[in-house]
Design a binder for these strands. Structure first.
Lengths: 225, 225
DNA sequence: CGGTTAATTGAGACTAGTCAAGCAACGTGG
DNA sequence: CCACGTTGCTTGACTAGTCTCAATTAACCG
């Protein structure tokens, strides 16, 4: 049991009237920074919902290098990719000390059958995850690095805001290298990007600390060109 | 009613034992080349399954230009992106004269509640669609155009093979511009790419006709570098 | 405190975008 | 049936943005 479900899995359980004894929530689990929650090809046992902390999903390209597919934070569901084949397609690594809820996938399908609202919520979660992926593709297809990085910052801010934090002032959990991998570029380019954005007083990023000063400028980067 | 369901929606109905009078299949619909099946912001009425023909999903970036998010062919489900919000996020355009099945989303959720196997199949379809998106992101994040184009050709071949056609000899339904948009580059670059691949005798692409001669070469492009 | 990982910055090479011109295929209407 | 306009495709020349390689500095951890 996991205590207050609403807090546990905000994205999924916020509307549904969940019976606490459905066997949905198996338990909590702490994941230390840099520890791996599951690996590619692992059997799908349980899904996970992030309680706090952050994760990255990575996939090895044809050579052995892992590139970042997505970042996850509180409220996000992890493991949906494995529903298709029964095995995970990504590796999930904690970016900081984190905690997740384990959710039985079998119990989810059972609950969906009996509780229409829960089914709606769950399908919505999956659809939203799909759209997030699609948005990421759209960003990657954009030509310039400036656009990509601007949209990265704005989207990250928006996600913090949804969790009740400031959208213009936050800390990065990921390295420059991870940002670069996520945006389809290199560490060096990210570093230069940051220097340039700093110099233009659009933001001030020092280490992992981000302050967005000129939001409109970032938005305008994505519209023009 | 839609006749033999198995043929109608191979990806979704191949396992499930569907009652024909479930009200799932509303009907067929012909979509002429270049016609639009649904637009972004349209209300989600029905999902669609491609019977034959091909489609592209596009989304306008912050300026008005549409870029290609995905290509679809027989057996693919269209409209899953709208489940989250109730409204479509993409525009779906037929690349050639095509036919789709209309499937009631309300009937889908109802059928899922009563038929466990159908629920599994549908969730798998969604998960697979997610993974396809993720794979596309991975391709876009790759550095070189050569890799992207090679993986585009190989993946397209694999999809034709799954439908019972040759994986190394097929026709493109899309323009160079659409390929470029899908791969995050320009018409001109795609054209040059094709010329170069032709010159290296890896493929012979003339107009819309593709012959893959040296599959291993294409694979090696993706592995090294 | 020393060793490791992360981040920054510079210089040169090269990929891929832009602009421009020309060709080919196609369909329409005179 | 042909002239014409439209659209799709190819190729060239030039340029700009990004990657690679390399060296240095900063932050982190045992």
């Amino acid at each position: 049991m996991c205590g207050a479900n609403r807090i546990c899995v905000p994205g999924l359980f916020n509307v549904a009237n969940i019976e606490l004894d459905d066997g949905l929530i198996i338990g909590r689990r702490r994941i230390a920074r840099h520890a791996i929650l599951f690996r590619e090809r692992d059997r799908l046992g349980t899904l996970f919902a992030v309680r706090f902390g952050q994760f990255k999903s990575t996939k090895a390209n044809s050579l052995g290098e892992h590139s970042v597919a997505q970042f996850y934070m509180a409220g996000d569901l992890l493991g949906l990719d494995a529903i298709g084949t029964g095995r995970h397609n990504f590796r999930l690594t904690a970016l900081e000390n984190s905690e997740v809820c384990e959710i039985s996938y079998a119990a989810i399908t059972k609950t969906m059958a009996t509780q229409p609202q829960f089914m709606r919520d769950f399908l919505q979660s999956m659809s939203t995850a799909m759209n997030d992926q699609a948005d990421h593709s759209a960003v990657l297809a954009k030509a310039s690095l400036d656009e990509r990085f601007a949209s990265f910052l704005l989207r990250l801010g928006a996600r913090y805001e949804r969790l009740g934090y400031s959208s213009r002032s936050f800390r990065l959990c990921m390295t420059r290298g991870e940002i670069g991998s996520y945006l389809g570029t290199t560490v060096e380019s990210v570093s230069r990007l940051i220097s340039r954005f700093n110099a233009q007083h659009a933001v001030s990023i020092m280490g992992r600390t981000v302050e967005i000063h000129d939001r409109d400028y970032l938005v305008s980067l994505m519209t023009r060109n």
